[in-house]
């Protein structure tokens, strides 16, 4: 989905590279007929929800009806109940949790430089389909100043450590999200997208 807040081009380049077809659209009919939805995004949650507008209900409803959804970066942050970036903004509420600022000081007193930008190691929990075949953990490219504090008992979360634990990815049924940029994380990132592609194909059958 291109709702004007992202590096959609990079996502499309990566999707095409893995031999998968993607359509850039914000049409309700496309959202309803697609095998899966990718919600990319760079920038701030509140602004992203505003530009998503009425489409947020459409996305919510197809996701709740079982269509695979992958949120990336701000698209990932939109999956939660609310965000505290520049005020309080309601999210899609698909996964329980809130999006809050990365503190400038770690619990051990260390200074955290913000944004959290660069490659960090994400540790995979068991049975997280996005990371099938990728081993126990891999490095992915991050660029975020806010992070998701996830309180959903039904969600699987893969964490990365940045002085505090930051959610790198989440899965709740058919709803997936990555705080990192899989389209910008080299071969391992492309493998995450390949896994999402497989999930979409399986769901279609």
């Amino acid at each position: 989905m291109d709702y004007g807040v992202g590096n959609v081009k990079s996502v499309i380049n990566a999707i095409n590279h893995i031999g998968c077809e993607a359509k850039v659209s914000c049409e309700i009919s496309d959202i309803e007929t697609a095998d899966g939805i990718i919600l990319p995004g760079v920038g701030a949650c509140g602004y992203a929800m505003t530009v998503l507008g009425d489409l947020s209900e459409v996305v919510r409803s197809v996701a709740l009806n079982g269509k695979p959804l992958l949120g990336i970066c701000v698209g990932f942050q939109l999956l939660f109940d609310e965000s505290y970036e520049h005020g309080v903004h309601k999210g899609l509420g698909l996964v329980s949790g809130k999006v809050i600022p990365i503190p400038s000081t770690a619990p051990n007193g260390g200074r955290l430089s913000i944004p959290h930008m660069g490659w960090n190691l994400v540790n995979f929990p068991d049975d997280m389909e996005l990371f099938d075949g990728l081993g126990d953990g891999k490095h992915f490219a991050f660029a975020n100043s806010y992070y998701a504090d996830i309180s959903d008992a039904d969600a699987k979360v893969a964490y990365t450590n940045y002085g505090i634990d930051i959610a790198g990815a989440v899965q709740k049924g058919n709803i997936f999200g990555c705080q990192f940029h899989p389209e910008k994380s080299g071969e391992d990132g492309l493998n995450v997208l390949r896994n999402f592609d497989r999930i979409c194909k399986r769901n279609k059958q």
Partner: peptide, 11 residues
């Protein structure tokens, strides 16, 4: 644009 097509790291 052409370079970006094959670059899957931050650019």
């Amino acid at each position: 644009e052409k370079v970006a097509k094959n670059v899957f790291i931050p650019f």
